[in-house]
Amino acid sequence: MQTKHWQQRLLTLPPMSYLLIFFAVPTVIMLFASFRYAGEYGGLAPWYSYEEGKLAFDLTLENWQRLFETDIYLRLFAKSIGYAVLTTLLCILLGYPLALMIARSPRKHRDLLLLLVILPFWSNFLVRIYAWMIIFSPSGALTHMINSLLDIFGLAPISLMYSPTAVIVCLVYVHLPFMVLPLYANLEKHDPALLDAAQDLGATRWRRFWKITWPISLPGVYAGSILVFIPVLGMFAIPDLLGGTDGIMIANVIKQQFVESRDWPFGSVLSMVLTVAAVLAVLLGAKFGQQAGQTR
């Protein structure tokens, strides 16, 4: 028993130290940086100095005050969370029927169907975004089709490119597999006997879904939601490429601090807030997932 315990520790040491080195340590560095001054030409200013032989600390709360000085950053956080929630909901709406269909299809087809879900990962993420830019562009096929339809009804042509719609469509497109896969893993394990029993007792198709399938699948829904919500919250490439003049999300501003304005301390402040938001989302998701898992 003692040796087994010891072996277990040894096995978990590499992943634990990996997480510690590449997540915990950078987070602590970032937290520290958020209290320092920016260097004149980027980077960070020294955090201590000797003045007349005495050690003096050059730390400040100024960067955190800037967060609350104006409401623009908090509004941007709210907007990004809104985008992330909307994307997650759309992914559930689109992903759930798909995962259910795959889970209920004949066993020999399932692997192929799953492969098709993963297929987009074979090409680079940015290449797929550029493909969407072509689809959405005013001279693109999709816009042409929609506008000729609108024209029949006498409506003014619309522009898809550089709009919040384009951003949301792409966010959903990119993250849909992250919703489908955990949902499928859950749905596939459901015991069909439960549905048969409900049917024998006279439950309608709809009732069978809401009373049996949906509650049992909730842990999968929460797992998928976390996998979608968090990357969307920190997304900057899609709003950069497809967003219009007001399309930015919070991660774009964080990138701006580190790259354009070379203001690492304020970038660290915004990153810390984002990290806290993501951790809260995970905790909430995990809590609900656990509860849902226990009630069944």
Binding site: Y37, A38, G39, E40, Y41, I72, D246, E260, R262
Partner: peptide
């Protein structure tokens, strides 16, 4: 011309205000 940290900070604030509205 190269701008200092304070100037960059002001410009970035104005820029972010533009981008969000």
């Amino acid at each position: 011309e190269a701008s200092d940290a304070k100037q960059r900070r002001l410009l970035n604030k104005l820029w972010t205000e533009i981008k969000i509205k």
